[in-house]
């Protein structure tokens, strides 16, 4: 579904991503693990075309998307859920969903607000509330719901557990598993290994902009020295 190879990116002169490679298969959940500042968010932004990659290839659903504009990439069925949520605070819940709305994608059940409210029940109770007057957890659900309105085949989910209460994290994990059951592919970025292992099939570890390790979640849980080296704080 998504193949990234040799991806490099710079902020000014600082080399942020160096030869990043990863892939996500159809219906698979892959987690990109790493500490703060390791390059997780930049990897996602580079895939989405929000940070111009200086080198490398990004293939999505058989098409090369490197160098395309974000809106074109989104229209191919790649959804992006940013870490900072970036809810439109002046718009209501329904209006936020409206901004994300795109035509249905062949082979996937189209998303409607009603279906999304079934997935995130708390959103259904606040359809007309402005995005700026919602809690962090509610905003996180709204930002995922907004992206789903575009009927993507794959979503880039940047640190969805960040700053959420443990109860909310549990619910988030359930939602992600439900999305996987729908046939959606997900590239997740996380620092929270506990959350990652609840939902992911495979893991890729990034550190200082380079991929250091890749394998299944079971392998990662068995490899104490890898977790020690790249993930412990």
């Amino acid at each position: 579904m998504l193949q990234v190879a040799g991806l490099s990116a710079y902020y000014g002169r600082a080399h942020i991503l160096d030869d990043v490679a990863l892939d996500v298969g159809g219906g698979e959940v892959v987690v990109l693990l790493g500490r703060n500042g390791a390059g997780k968010s930049t990897t996602m932004k580079a895939i989405m075309g929000l940070v111009p990659p200086s080198a490398g290839n990004v293939r999505f659903a058989g098409a090369e998307i490197g160098g395309r504009e974000p809106f074109e990439i989104a229209r191919l069925g790649l959804g992006y859920v940013p870490e900072e949520r970036r809810i439109f605070t002046g718009l209501s819940v329904m209006e936020n969903l409206e901004v994300g709305r795109r035509p249905a994608t062949a082979g996937l059940r189209p998303w409607t607000p009603e279906r999304l409210f079934a997935l995130f029940p708390s959103l259904g109770a606040m359809r007309d509330r402005p995005g700026g007057r919602m809690s962090g957890g509610e905003q996180q659900m709204l930002t995922i719901a907004r992206t789903l309105m575009g009927n993507p085949r794959l979503i880039l989910l940047d640190e969805p557990s960040e700053g959420l209460a443990p109860v909310v994290i549990e619910r988030m994990a359930e939602a992600i598993r439900a999305l996987k059951a729908e046939g959606l592919s997900i590239l997740l970025s996380e620092q929270n290994l506990h959350f990652a292992q609840l939902v992911s099939d495979r893991a890729t570890i990034i550190e200082k902009g380079r991929i250091r390790w890749s394998g299944s979640i079971a392998e990662l849980l068995a490899a104490d020295e890898v977790r020690e080296q790249y993930l412990s704080v």
Partner: peptide
């Protein structure tokens, strides 16, 4: 819908683009 998109873009145009809006 156009107006909703415009108001969203007023706040965060990059995000609107990432949601597939030209």
């Amino acid at each position: 819908r156009w107006g909703t998109l415009v108001r969203a873009a007023t706040q965060d145009r990059e995000m609107v683009g990432a949601l597939g809006v030209n």
